[in-house]
Amino acid sequence: MLTEEDIADSVLVEHAQDGDTSAFELLVRRYQNPVYRIALRVTGNEGDAADAAQEAFIAAWRQLPELDNPATFSGWLYRIVSRRALNSIRSRRPTSPIGEDGAELPDPSIGPEHHSVATDLRSALAKALENLPPPQRVCWTLRELEGMSYEEIAAIVDATPTAVRGRIHRARTHLVEALKPWR
């Protein structure tokens, strides 16, 4: 007898494609933590992350019949939530233009000295990430924390893989610099 845990994603995806809401509920239970985690890492804000995660699952339910290969469900879902999260930070900062190459430096007036001092390495990195231009932060986060490929990230942020690679490199340079006191 198969238990719920044994049912492959592909089978649940196909049931949900045929309109089975209980099968979709199992998929939401299975993926809610990683989906929310991606949204949180991209937006840096719990409220925005919860909204992005919720919208992503509802969009996934609506678009599911168009997913040709059910075995690609998780990557497909992660792309949806990453795009939603990215849109939410874009709409949140209408006054600060986000350059396509994401090369601009953070505003020096919100430098680390104006934040509470990080007391451990992990929070130091979290703070340094907050200070990165969003395009750099998003690319670095999806690559280094979520393990996505340059091509996957490029499709999410509407840039070429080369541009993504450049943003990650610049992000890394900033982060290494910010963590220097911790060496």
């Binding site: 939401v28 239970r29 809610q32 933590n33 919860a50 995660a53 699952f57």
Partner: peptide, 8 residues
Amino acid sequence: VTAPPQLL
């Protein structure tokens, strides 16, 4: 990271 309880 755990999703908020009301998400589901």
